[in-house]
């Protein structure tokens, strides 16, 4: 039979244990964004341009190949890295260079990144270079944006239209 003293002690111990379970199940709160902050998330899936153009093989080069492999045109598979930069009111807030994955660096890149930014109206400029043979951006997008507290602004790139999509 449980003595009254033990009953009280057990209730105390259970209460202490459950207080710990309760508290750490939701507290302390995690503040992810300040009251005057929003977030810009960049999500780009894009394959850079080929590093080199296809070229015609010379008769000597063709002769070195097995007969069934003698295709007149040779195309290098390697793709350009993709440079991306986001600026707000002229200040760069994010910049990255994504190398193409794969053994032959021949695959598309995936860039996913989130940036905390202050709220308010800003002039946003997104620049992307996907061709190592071109100096400067190959795609740009400029837009005035107004960010509310806790807003998520997403920037994606449509390969089919060649345009950035900002939502």
């Amino acid at each position: 039979m449980l003595s009254p003293k033990r009953l009280v002690l057990q209730i105390f111990n259970y209460a202490l244990f459950m207080a710990l379970v309760w508290y750490f199940s939701f507290a302390p709160p995690y503040i992810r964004l300040g009251a005057d902050e929003a977030m810009i998330t960049l999500s780009i899936s894009h394959a850079g341009e080929l590093v080199a153009d296809c070229r015609q093989l010379s008769p000597e080069e063709l002769a070195k190949l097995p007969p069934n492999m003698r295709l007149a045109t040779s195309c290098d598979r390697e793709r350009s890295p993709v440079d991306l930069e986001i600026s707000l009111d002229g200040d760069s807030v994010f910049r990255t260079t994504a190398e193409p994955p794969g053994l032959y660096k021949d695959q598309g890149v995936d860039i996913y990144h989130s940036i905390k930014v202050p709220t308010g109206t800003k002039q946003m400029l997104v620049k992307m270079n996907d061709n190592i043979r071109v100096k400067g951006p190959t795609f740009t997008h400029e837009q005035e944006i107004t960010l509310e507290p806790a807003q998520l602004l997403t920037i994606q790139f449509s390969t089919s239209t060649g345009q950035f999509v900002v939502k």
């Binding site: 939701f26 992810r32 806790a150």
Partner: peptide, 11 residues
């Protein structure tokens, strides 16, 4: 379209 500013994480 939103980012929760404060989260009650289960630690």
């Amino acid at each position: 379209r939103k980012v929760p500013a404060e989260l009650n994480l289960d630690w």
